[in-house]
């Protein structure tokens, strides 16, 4: 089971991740999960085979500040989530303007779920934990 070590907010995101990188952690990747009304953004970091996960909940339509200035390795994955989920990421080191993976004539935001359509995620992990977790 994966544990979320800390929940970030938009204000302290840069500071917390910067502090983690100073401890020798390195960036692994970012995962975005569409929950209908908002996105779960999970930052995975690693040190000595040990993974630390930071979670950020982003409302749909909000702008996500990029971490590519403090951690260049994130630039590729941030461009990818810009394409696939339509999240606008600000201050990118290299900005492909939402055409990194997708061609100009491709459907926009293909990985997004329209609220109410195709959303099967009624139970989130937090709700599952309240019910006594995984059996």
């Amino acid at each position: 089971m994966m544990t979320v070590n800390e929940v970030l907010t938009l204000e302290n995101q840069q500071e917390k991740i910067g502090a983690l990188l100073l401890h020798g952690y390195r960036f692994v990747t970012m995962t975005v999960v569409d929950k209908g009304e908002e996105f779960d953004i999970i930052y995975h970091f690693d040190l000595d085979y040990d993974m630390v996960n930071y979670q950020l909940v982003l409302k749909k339509g909000d702008v996500l500040p990029s971490i590519s200035d403090i951690c260049f390795a994130a630039v590729i994955v941030e461009n990818e989530i810009q394409d696939l989920f339509g999240i606008t990421v600000s201050n990118l080191a290299i900005d492909y303007e939402k055409h990194f993976l997708l061609a100009p004539d491709a459907p926009a935001e293909p990985f997004c779920r329209v609220p109410g359509v195709g959303v099967t995620a009624v139970k989130t992990t937090a709700a599952a934990a309240e019910n006594g977790g995984d059996k």
């Binding site: 692994v28 975005v32 390795a73 630039v75 590729i76 099967t120």
Partner: peptide, 14 residues
């Protein structure tokens, strides 16, 4: 709900 794959080459581009 979600399956995310971070492949090795993806990490090796930077």
């Amino acid at each position: 709900d979600r399956l995310r794959i971070r492949t090795p080459t993806f990490a090796n581009i930077a």
